[in-house]
Design a protein around this nucleic acid. Structure first.
Lengths: 227, 227
DNA sequence: GTTGACAAGATTGTTGAGCAATCTGTAGAT
DNA sequence: ATCTACAGATTGCTCAACAATCTTGTCAAC
């Protein structure tokens, strides 16, 4: 692992935040796989910071649920159980369908974001880049949740999605898994924009149920393979 | 401030977590008021731990939104703006009404918890203890959200409520503010238990709107009083 | 009286070394 | 094969120190 150049958006005010952001990004991009151990001494040397600084970053990541910690034994990239996946999808159903129902009172700009995110996702599929398509699809869902109008809910959902990526990483064929959703994103977006909210929520529920089923199968297979 | 004896439930595995839990509790109970500065050197001495340990606790509290931090200037108990209050109530409307709609598929035990929490709240009003009544009322709302069936949503809502307490603290007459809700909690609980979910969500929405209005007025008054 | 510049103090951000507690894995004894 | 004891690894935490930066108080200029 190497130190990332600070992202343009957030200049990473402190060293601990830079470490946190970098490790989080590595996890999101699948460069750090679930179960991977994170030894603070080693991280400190790689990032060129002190152990205390790494520890602060690890604590924050652990609070976010991305890193598991066992006292006096070590940190590691979290491995999600099937129970975790179900919990995350239960939360997604609540937030995403709820946000659709509240879309009646959402400002036009947020509706436009939803439309745009669905289109961006389609573009990446056409150009065959499933990895970007997957990211764009998640951005679409974040745009949906943003319609609810709460920055705190946005942040929570953002973290939920980051955790979900831990499960994506263990899917046997992630490209085939990811590509199938894009068309459904478009359908949901159209129903939202048309104001047909009940149909949109129904479709969203189907989507989430199907996605959950597949991921739980994948996680279960990975669990068995580990033993 | 003094060091709390570790709570029975969670033995506070590490020193940093003990500090975090203690400061959080002090904030919840109104012993630390919004704007109060939290100097790590001073906290370290009071808790008998090192500065680094206090810093880790402050970072976690800042991530939770309970503590504000300005680089090289200091930590302080967060002061909520009217925008923050609105954001929190927008989140509450989404989560609480959504949870009620999902109560159809909630296990009986969780419904029983909702009933019990509403009753406990009433009891404390009868015995005139508005402070406990307020806590019990919030517990009722947490029980409602728990019906949604996601531990991650529970934790998020728990934190949301903790932030809201920052606003309660600046209400001119908190006892009068708190007592008025208890009867409505009971009504909502009865509608949920009767399976009249649409009426329950409508009543919940009214409740949250009224509560938001009053708190925003209180926060606005406190803002003016500060200048 | 208000404004602005400047210096002094306070506080955080971070480092680096060090020690105790505890987990993990290994080698040996039964 | 199972259990035990030991050694190594890793975390949790402390302490002292220094640089960067924010805040406050002072003083002069307008």
């Amino acid at each position: 692992m190497t130190i990332d150049t600070p992202r343009a958006g957030q200049p990473a005010a402190t060293a601990a935040e830079a470490v946190q952001a970098s490790v989080r990004q590595h996890i999101s991009e699948g460069r750090l796989l679930p179960g991977q151990r994170l030894v603070d001494q080693a991280l400190a040397e790689e990032f060129g910071v002190s152990r205390n600084t790494v520890r602060e970053a690890m604590r924050l990541l652990a609070a976010d649920g991305l890193v598991a910690s066992v006292r006096n034994a070590g940190y590691s990239v979290r491995t999600l159980t099937t129970g975790d996946v179900h919990d995350i999808y239960t939360a997604r159903r609540l937030l995403e369908t709820g946000a659709i129902l509240k879309s009646a009172s959402a400002p036009d700009a947020l509706l436009a974001d939803v439309d745009q995110a669905a289109s961006a996702s389609e573009q990446h599929v056409l150009s065959g880049d499933w990895n970007r398509a997957a990211t764009a699809s998640l951005d679409f869902h974040r745009a949906v949740v943003r319609m609810a109008g709460s920055t705190r809910v946005d942040a929570f959902f953002h973290n939920l999605v980051a955790q979900l990526r831990l499960a994506f990483a263990v899917m046997p064929d992630e490209s085939a898994f990811q590509i199938q959703w894009v068309g459904r994103d478009r359908q949901i977006a159209d129903l939202i924009l048309a104001g047909r909210r009940d149909e949109a929520t129904a479709l969203m529920n189907d989507y989430l149920n199907d996605s959950e089923t597949q991921i739980i199968d994948g996680v279960r297979a990975a669990e068995r393979a580990r033993h």
